[in-house]
Amino acid sequence: RERTTFTRAQLDVLEALFAKTRYPDIFMREEVALKINLPESRVQVWFKNRRAKCRQ
């Protein structure tokens, strides 16, 4: 699998959701994945990595 490159628009949507909740449930992830045209698994990993970035 190639490394996913997120567009600015995708990142804006993800960051906005992250500001609301750091742990979105499966339904929220599915919804945002459809909206920004990414698989739900990529959204899940993005959140995992974003939380890790926050902890540093």
Rank of each mutant, 00 (worst) to 15 (best):
E40L: 07
F6E: 09
N37H: 10
W46S: 01
Q44W: 07
K20T: 12
R29F: 05
A16W: 04
A9C: 11
V43S: 00
R42Y: 13
A19T: 09
R1H: 15
A16P: 05
I26Y: 13
K53C: 15
A9S: 13
A52L: 09
L14G: 03
T5P: 10
P24S: 02
V45H: 14
L38I: 03
T4K: 10
F18C: 00
M28W: 01
R51N: 13
V45Q: 14
T7E: 07
D12T: 10
Q44Y: 07
L14M: 08
F18M: 04
A52E: 12
R51W: 03
T7F: 03
N37K: 12
P24W: 00
C54I: 12
T21V: 08
E15F: 02
V13W: 04
K53T: 12
E30G: 06
F18D: 00
N49R: 11
F27V: 13
P39L: 04
R29W: 00
Y23Q: 08
R51A: 07
R51V: 06
N37P: 00
S41T: 10
K48L: 06
S41Y: 11
I26L: 10
T7K: 07
R29V: 15
V45I: 12
K48E: 15
E31I: 04
L17W: 04
V43F: 03
L38N: 03
A19R: 10
T5E: 14
F18V: 02
F18E: 01
R29K: 02
F47W: 04
D25I: 00
K53F: 12
R50D: 02
E40Y: 09
V45E: 12
R55A: 12
C54V: 12
T5I: 15
K20M: 08
V45R: 08
R42D: 15
R8T: 14
V13K: 07
V45T: 13
P39Q: 07
L17Y: 13
K20D: 05
Q56N: 09
E2T: 06
T4Y: 14
R55I: 08
F47R: 01
R50M: 13
R8K: 14
D12F: 03
K48I: 11
V45P: 02
R42E: 15
N37R: 09
W46L: 02
A52I: 08
T4I: 15
Y23G: 02
I36M: 13
F18S: 02
A33L: 02
R55Y: 13
P24M: 01
Y23E: 14
C54R: 06
A33S: 09
D25Q: 06
A9F: 12
K48S: 08
Q44K: 09
Y23V: 05
V32C: 15
R55K: 14
V43Y: 00
R1T: 11
M28E: 07
T5V: 11
M28A: 14
K53D: 15
E30V: 06
R3L: 12
K53P: 06
K53R: 10
W46K: 01
E30C: 10
R3D: 12
N37Q: 09
F47H: 01
R1S: 08
V45A: 14
T7Q: 15
C54M: 15
T5F: 12
R8D: 07
A16S: 09
L34I: 12
N49V: 08
R42Q: 15
V45G: 12
T4R: 08
L34S: 12
K48H: 09
I26T: 15
P39F: 01
W46Q: 03
R1G: 10
E31K: 11
A52H: 13
A9D: 08
T4E: 13
K35N: 10
L17D: 00
V32W: 00
E2Q: 13
V32E: 01
C54E: 13
L11S: 06
A19W: 06
R51Y: 02
S41K: 09
R8W: 04
L34M: 12
L17I: 09
Q10R: 01
P24E: 00
T7P: 02
W46T: 00
